[in-house]
């Protein structure tokens, strides 16, 4: 029975992705993409990766969907000139060959796993018991620091390009009770995911994405007015995560002589501190990526 479940799920993933990419109706493709994201998250749960599934559900389905919807009406549909049939057939053939080769290569790849033994051997000294959090914030913390830097670079790019703000709309009197329940729920869930990330699936990225979802509800419901002052505060919070992480890296260098090697026995405190700041900072960054920055006159910059 569970095999039938897997087959149906895999079929559903490919089918919804094809539906999302195959139509020129904007709402249909974005709704299809959001459902694809949900089904992919479900299949990641089946593949034994609940941490990734949480992030995919929160970011891949939720926030990317909102981003695409924001842009959907601003981008003009391209002229519907279809490429000639012969081109499409050739491309389709190449795509089928690519898929086949990829599936064959992945399936027949030698399965000698190198990392699980190493990770479980050192897990006790990492300060946390969830192996994914241990890899992200202890063994490979340097990668995570650079990732936050990448997010910040994207934020600066969005600031330079300065897309228009999404306009808040009046949505009626049911919005207030909705926001009153959903926004505190988001904050509570973010805290819960952050705290439990040390031992079971969860962590800073998932928590940050959920928090950003709550802020999105506030913005879309028209409860938060995007003044330049608020946006620059958001920018400060976004920068704070990168700054705290960098300072933590430098102080571990000073304390232990190695970059991001936490002092003995205090690893959990360090990881939780960094994660808490990262959660706020990731939420701020994702929100700013969604709502864009104000365009300033040139002589003001």
């Amino acid at each position: 029975m569970s095999l039938a479940f897997d087959i149906l799920l895999a079929f559903g993933v490919v089918f919804t992705a094809a539906a999302a990419l195959g139509t020129h109706d904007r709402v249909a493709s974005i709704a299809g993409f959001v459902v694809t994201g949900l089904l992919v998250a479900l299949s990641l749960v089946r593949l034994g990766a609940p941490d990734v599934a949480l992030a995919e559900a929160a970011i891949g389905a939720g926030l990317t969907g909102a981003l695409l919807l924001r842009s959907a009406w601003r981008l003009k549909p391209a002229e519907s000139r279809v490429s000639p049939a012969i081109d499409r057939i050739i491309v389709a053939l190449i795509a089928v060959c690519l898929s086949g080769a990829l599936a064959w290569a992945v399936y027949t790849a030698p399965g000698a796993a190198l990392y699980p033994a190493l990770v479980s051997e050192r897990l006790a000294e990492s300060g946390v018991t969830n192996p994914v959090t241990a890899v992200l914030l202890n063994f490979r913390a340097w990668d995570t620091l650079l990732e936050i830097a990448v997010l910040f670079v994207a934020l600066i790019l969005v600031r330079i390009v300065a897309p228009a703000h999404p306009q808040p709309v009046v949505l009626g009197e049911l919005m207030l009770p909705f926001a009153r329940i959903v926004v505190p729920m988001c904050a509570f869930l973010a805290g819960h995911l952050l705290w439990q990330g040390a031992s079971v699936p969860g962590g800073a990225f998932q928590a940050g994405a959920i928090l950003a979802g709550g802020l999105l509800v506030l913005m879309l419901g028209g409860f938060a007015v995007l003044t330049p002052r608020l946006l620059s505060w958001g920018m400060m919070v976004a920068l704070l995560g990168l700054a705290v992480f960098a300072v933590a890296a430098l102080s571990t260098e000073a304390l232990t002589g190695t970059l991001l090697l936490y002092p003995d026995g205090a690893a959990k405190i360090w990881i939780l501190m960094i994660e808490a700041v990262l959660t706020l900072s990731i939420a701020a960054m994702l929100c700013l990526l969604f709502c864009g920055m104000p365009r300033r006159p040139l002589n003001d910059v």
């Binding site: 949505l171 009626g172 049911l174 919005m175 009770p177 909705f178 329940i181 959903v182 729920m185």
Partner: peptide
């Protein structure tokens, strides 16, 4: 319980907004 409350709430609100 929280799951049920959230899904019911979002169903009600989204349904109301779509119908409106």
């Amino acid at each position: 319980g929280l799951c049920v409350v959230l899904v019911a709430l979002s169903g009600v609100t989204i349904g109301h907004l779509i119908a409106r």
